[in-house]
Design a protein around this nucleic acid. Structure first.
Length: 280
DNA sequence: AAAAATTTCAACCGCAGAAAA
DNA sequence: GTTTTCTGCGGTTGAAATTTT
């Protein structure tokens, strides 16, 4: 013999919750806790199944849920976590306080996934999804036809993935201070808990077996790396601001970029690119 | 101004594993 | 040990909202 049936399936309401239903659920849980979800609807006077109540509470009514747009930092965290964990939305949510798995999943499918595809990255593997010739062609189009829409973030993402596809070895350095971003990343990773598998970021691993690029940062003006930039978190650890970015493969520079005007702070996401080396 | 197309996201569905009888 | 339910998860849907034509 098994358990008694979960609930009477007949006559249960489905679809959007009304404010009255929400209030009943909130009042009940605040008073008694949710207990077993199966028995909650009856006790709380709701014509819903327990599963629907659980979902409504977990994804919408819970008091610790953060509302509003995802910050840039949250978005980058999601991408990094997804590159390691895949579509394990509940595990990703557990590492983003106040965000629900459903919300993260929706945000991934509606925003991040498209953004990665736009940058030439396969959102499943987090690897370049196009060959170098196609990438060159895309860079040409983006840089020369729509230069003002190309920000540092997108530039770096495309460039790093280009380097990845060239099978270079890993690490991201800040030069001349020789700051090794890999160690910072490993520190952050340690805080994520033990369940993470081998890191698989798009960048910044030293002594990794995975082929990945070197990035050398040189110059001044930290604004370049702030605001809407994948490397904004570098700001906190860089003692010298940055004004130009070079991508190298140890021996030769592949891409150089420099700000057109150092006084142009938040707008200095726009660069003069010299991408002749990219054109195969 | 209105119709059509597209995007968003709350909620549902089905499944797997855990738990209970 | 077996059967049945419960819970939580990820994929998907479709109504509502927003944008485009």
């Amino acid at each position: 013999m098994g358990r008694v049936p979960c609930c009477d399936k007949n006559g249960l309401k489905k679809g959007p919750w009304t404010p009255e239903e929400d209030q009943k659920l909130i009042d009940y849980i605040q008073k008694h806790g949710h207990g077993t979800w199966r028995s909650l609807p009856k006790n709380a006077g709701l014509a819903r199944c327990g599963k629907s109540c659980r979902l409504r509470w977990a994804n919408y009514l819970r008091p610790d849920i953060k509302r509003g747009r995802f910050s840039f930092e949250e978005e980058e965290a999601i991408i990094q976590l997804h590159s390691v964990l895949g579509n394990k939305w509940s595990e990703i949510a557990a590492r983003l306080p106040g965000r629900t798995d459903n919300e993260i999943k929706n945000y991934w499918n509606t925003h991040i996934r498209k953004r990665l595809l736009h940058s030439g990255i396969d959102p499943v593997t987090h690897r370049p999804r196009i060959d170098l010739l196609n990438l060159s062609s895309i860079l040409n189009t983006v840089l020369f036809n729509q230069p003002t829409q190309m920000n540092t973030h997108e530039f770096l993402r495309i460039a790093v993935n280009l380097l990845q596809s060239q099978q270079l070895t890993s690490s991201l350095f800040y030069n001349p201070a020789q700051f090794n971003y890999a160690s910072q990343w490993q520190h952050n990773e340690a805080n994520l808990g033990e369940s993470l598998a081998t890191p698989n970021s798009n960048f910044c691993y030293e002594n990794s077996e995975q082929p990945i690029s070197n990035l050398l940062y040189e110059g001044s003006t930290s604004e370049l790396l702030s605001d809407n930039n994948v490397y904004s978190n570098l700001d906190s650890v860089l003692s010298t601001p940055v004004s130009s970015i070079s991508l190298t493969n140890n021996s030769s520079t592949i891409i150089n970029s420099s700000a057109e005007d150092e006084k142009d702070t938040y707008c200095s996401n726009y660069f003069d690119f010299q991408i002749s080396d990219l054109l195969i």
